[in-house]
Design a protein around this nucleic acid. Structure first.
Lengths: 375, 375
DNA sequence: CTGAAAGCGCTAACAC
DNA sequence: GTGTTAGCGCTTTCAG
């Protein structure tokens, strides 16, 4: 059983409040006493109980980070950046995964509410009104979604999607499909809107397939639909789906980029390791994590919740409610190329016989697209 | 400012203790009163403050999960399994990432200690004695390491490494290298020991390269050494390094598996998506996460720390200290093949000129190894 | 079945 | 500088 403040007080012959001060306001205590107290504390292995402290100060020095899916390689850089930024300010981050489940999201916010000073809600799947409601329970910063009246950090995927589509138009594609993301995703809606506008502006046919699970499996499952639709270029909700799609097309005997061009979004590390290397829209993940922490801590530093001293502060006073949108960038690699001459994804589309995967695939593309090439 | 138990008591005209009971021991309160209390609570949006409750019960219903590197795809399945197992028992999991840093590990255990009922220490990089010391502060279950006297769940990577080496020997390889993992990793030591024994027993030359960063980059950086050493088969500490190595070899003009066979460990999802598909040792990750939670909660259910009722319980009473080792399995895919006839990784090793990456690589292997083939 | 009182570990006025 | 006193929000004897 761990030592308490009282044990230390007894051992060093002072009152518990002196021990308390030794830790929370060292300058207020005589160096000599302080030394003795510290020694005893060390000896007993005493560490202030943060939870008890939080009960009265209203500040836990923890922040919660709620993530739709830890297994999605999109998130780790964001998580790590948030953690390191938080650590610098003497905060700890507790990460929790919701499995893309809006119910779990809500539950987790509740569970975390009292144990953290604020939570970063990343790529939420729940409704805006739910988010607003939760924000009255605990300070929230929303990542990858815009919610009126709340601090948000988003990435400009609309711009990214537009660049991607324009890249495809430039390569001569006139039938473009979008593999949309999960239901409830703000990002997916933004992409859809922007890609649709750009495609139509370029005189291309635009098909939306989805909503889908944002995973390899989700992407692979759409290969047949893509083949049948005859589109020659696909923009996927994320890199994972793009990679899955490429696999799936491969199994159907369609080669990327010769028969079909594929663009992902995110630029996860993996997208540089597959064959062909993925053309994709890079999103500033780590920056988003850092920024979100800053925004939370900034308006959180102003006023502690529930502490005695700040009882009178209304929540309106402390809301700067910045909304930050970070820039994205198209990275052109090997999964996009000029559209097939006949404008279809397969010369003999009707008679295609899906062959066994390992025998049917492409070698590696030898010539890539025009445009800026990144490695 | 959130409603407290007192607000609810006032609103429903009962004493706070009755409100308390309504939530923590409903059967002890008159259904009618209970109804009224619940209604008021609902109305006010009251939720019991878990932290305050923990202060007196000694149970937070949280468990901490400390991970060396969230970005390593090895961990997410483990994390998810732990979370879902915990949720079933009405516990929440707080994940924290240490960036492979032993200091951060220690700090995090301290930070978590009072806010959770126990912590799962996954792939620790700190010393055994440190772990033992920390285990006196908070119940610990160690994953991927054996520490005497503490509950541990490990995977039999020794057996896995042996199978891998025997597979390579069976393919005629007589010069085998091991890409070892990070300093301080128990797993890496086990692999090294077992692989060394197996290689020597098979009359093969055995080289250890490392310690290394367990990432793609870490693997890629070793390509040149592998080439120069003339080995024809490599076992990597994990799939990430194996994949990085394949990329690196590729850049040097060495083909996998024709020139060099590569085996990974973990069987991450990615290993099925690269070309060639990776031969690897599958580790039962999710099972490890589940098991660890069970072990923690089992011996944690027996006695709450610091609660009034259990003051006299010594920590000896509650330690069953099971040590579980889960089985691994070799999965043979396309990155291993018969050793080159001349027993070297390059016919003209000395005159090799590393070509530009994209022009030098293999197509896709058309025939794989003997043995059991998995897709 | 419900209320009264004590107290978990700690901090924050306020005296001295 | 340091001790005293009053709680933070909650649970848990113990009476009644």
């Amino acid at each position: 059983m761990p030592a308490t403040i009282r044990d230390v007080a007894r051992a060093s012959g002072v009152h518990i409040s002196t021990v308390s001060r030794t830790f929370s306001a060292p300058h207020l205590v005589n160096p000599e006493t302080r030394g003795r107290v510290l020694a005893c504390a060390e000896e007993l292995g005493y560490r202030p109980n943060r939870a008890a402290r939080a009960l009265i100060t209203g500040r836990t020095h923890n922040i919660g980070l709620i993530i739709a899916d830890i297994a999605n390689p999109f998130f780790p850089p964001l998580i790590k950046a948030a953690e390191s930024q938080a650590r610098q300010r003497d905060y700890h981050v507790f990460v929790a995964d919701t499995n893309e489940d809006p119910i779990a999201e809500e539950e987790l916010v509740h569970a975390l509410a009292k144990q953290v000073d604020g939570v970063l809600l990343c790529s939420p799947r729940m409704s805006n009104s739910m988010i607003e409601q939760l924000s009255r329970e605990v300070p929230l910063v929303v990542i990858n979604r815009q919610v009126a009246g709340l601090p948000c950090v988003t990435m400009d995927v609309g711009q990214g999607a537009r660049s991607a589509v324009e890249h495809l138009l430039g390569l001569g594609h006139r039938r473009i499909a979008l593999l949309s993301g999960p239901r409830g995703s703000w990002t997916s809606r933004e992409i859809r809107r922007a890609a649709g506008v750009a495609a139509r502006a370029g005189g291309a046919e635009f098909t939306v397939l989805g909503p889908n699970q944002p995973t390899e499996t989700g992407g692979a499952a759409l290969a047949e639909q893509v083949r049948r639709s005859g589109t020659t270029a696909v923009l996927a909700y994320n890199d994972l789906m793009a990679i899955g799609l490429i696999e799936g097309l491969d199994a159907l005997g369609l080669r990327v980029p010769q028969d079909v061009s594929v663009v992902g979004i995110d630029d996860i590390a993996l997208s540089r390791l597959t064959r062909p290397k993925l053309t994709t829209v890079a999103t500033p993940n780590a920056a988003a994590g850092r920024t979100a922490v800053d925004m939370l801590l900034q308006h959180d530093t102003v006023a502690a919740r529930g502490s005695r001293g700040s009882r009178g502060v209304t929540s309106d006073d402390r809301r700067t409610t910045a909304q930050v949108m970070l820039q994205t960038e198209l990275v052109i690699r090997d999964s996009t190329a000029a559209a097939p001459a006949d404008g279809r994804n397969r010369p003999d589309a009707e008679s295609a016989t899906p062959g066994p995967h390992r025998l049917a695939g492409p070698g590696r593309p030898t010539a890539a697209t025009g445009g800026v090439v990144a490695s």
